[in-house]
Simulated assay, not measured.
Amino acid sequence: MALRAVLFDMDGTLLDTAPDFVAVCQAMRSARDLPPADEQRVRDVISGGARAMVCAAFDLEVGAEGFEALRLEFLERYREHCAVFSKPFDGMLELLTDIERSRLIWGVATNKPVVFAEPIMQQLGLSERSAVLLCPDHVERSKPAPDMLLLACEQMGIAPSDVLFVGDDERDIEAGRAAGCKTAAVTYGYIHPEDNPRHWGADVVVDHPLELRAVLDSALCSC
């Protein structure tokens, strides 16, 4: 495996953004004099986006009466508070430093809209370090389609076969494989209880960001 770049999914892979999602859900419930939602229940469905989190926080189904108003309120509250508690996962900053010291480049390909993704990257001081930030706004089709990864590779000037894409959702691995990238699935992210990253067909599966060091070392030694 020869590598020149590493691309990360954002939520549940590069960053632990769950605290801000949960805080928004709790604020919405508090505004309605409701008790706090089950935090784990919200975390379990983060990969499903705003719709899934609103359903979990308010025990609703998509399309139920009042659902759309709650979804729009969730997005507006999150837009204003998307970078309060979010932070890189434990070990991720060390990994990014290792990547940079190895003269590799790294970037982000996320299904999170750019209106949220850019402020978070800026707030955490990662914008200057990331070679690319690709969001659904930049392509016709989001993951699991390969469009985002192919555009990222084009912008970096690197062949997909020389890129490792790291994600915590099966859609990430599908997109990476379809683009022709190497893939790594992480088990520490926002994995639905009924899902299993080891069944997604990734080239490697890791339980902690720093486990990717061995993957990078192996790739660099084989170059």
Score class of each variant (00 low, 15 high):
residue 3 L to R: 12
residue 26 Q to F: 08
residue 36 P to H: 05
residue 53 M to V: 09
residue 189 G to T: 03
residue 70 L to F: 08
residue 91 G to D: 12
residue 65 E to L: 15
residue 142 S to R: 15
residue 131 A to L: 01
residue 133 L to Q: 11
residue 18 A to V: 08
residue 52 A to T: 07
residue 154 E to K: 13
residue 140 E to F: 03
residue 40 Q to F: 10
residue 180 G to R: 00
residue 29 R to Q: 13
residue 54 V to Y: 04
residue 137 D to S: 12
residue 79 R to N: 07
residue 196 N to K: 14
residue 46 I to K: 06
residue 126 L to V: 07
residue 162 D to Q: 13
residue 73 E to T: 13
residue 144 P to L: 04
residue 114 V to Q: 05
residue 57 A to H: 06
residue 80 E to Y: 03
residue 144 P to K: 12
residue 175 A to Q: 03
residue 165 F to I: 11
residue 149 L to Q: 05
residue 28 M to Q: 08
residue 89 F to S: 00
residue 193 P to F: 01
residue 24 V to D: 06
residue 126 L to W: 01
residue 187 T to H: 06
residue 183 T to G: 11
residue 97 T to K: 02
residue 86 S to A: 15
residue 161 S to C: 10
residue 217 D to C: 04
residue 78 Y to V: 01
residue 38 D to C: 12
residue 70 L to G: 11
residue 183 T to D: 03
residue 124 L to D: 05
residue 132 V to T: 10
residue 27 A to H: 04
residue 62 V to Q: 12
residue 202 A to Q: 01
residue 93 L to Y: 03
residue 204 V to S: 07
residue 194 E to K: 13
residue 78 Y to D: 05
residue 198 R to I: 10
residue 39 E to R: 15
residue 219 A to D: 11
residue 58 F to I: 13
residue 134 L to Y: 00
residue 35 P to A: 11
residue 182 K to S: 11
residue 185 A to D: 02
residue 143 K to Y: 04
residue 133 L to F: 08
residue 121 M to F: 00
residue 39 E to F: 07
residue 59 D to T: 05
residue 14 L to T: 02
residue 190 Y to I: 01
residue 80 E to P: 00
residue 113 P to E: 04
residue 157 G to A: 01
residue 136 P to E: 12
residue 185 A to S: 10
residue 220 L to F: 09
residue 221 C to N: 13
residue 222 S to Y: 11
residue 151 L to T: 15
residue 204 V to G: 08
residue 42 V to M: 10
residue 60 L to K: 12
residue 41 R to G: 07
residue 56 A to V: 12
residue 134 L to I: 15
residue 78 Y to C: 00
residue 116 F to S: 01
residue 78 Y to P: 05
residue 33 D to G: 06
residue 159 A to T: 09
residue 114 V to G: 09
residue 84 V to I: 15
residue 43 R to Q: 04
residue 88 P to V: 07
residue 69 A to M: 10
residue 214 A to R: 08
residue 129 R to A: 04
residue 43 R to C: 12
residue 13 T to P: 02
residue 210 L to A: 01
residue 46 I to N: 03
residue 117 A to H: 02
residue 172 D to L: 09
residue 37 A to Q: 13
residue 86 S to K: 05
residue 150 L to T: 15
residue 130 S to E: 03
residue 16 D to K: 14
residue 29 R to D: 14
residue 114 V to N: 03
residue 89 F to H: 10
residue 208 H to C: 08
residue 159 A to M: 08
residue 139 V to P: 05
residue 67 F to M: 13
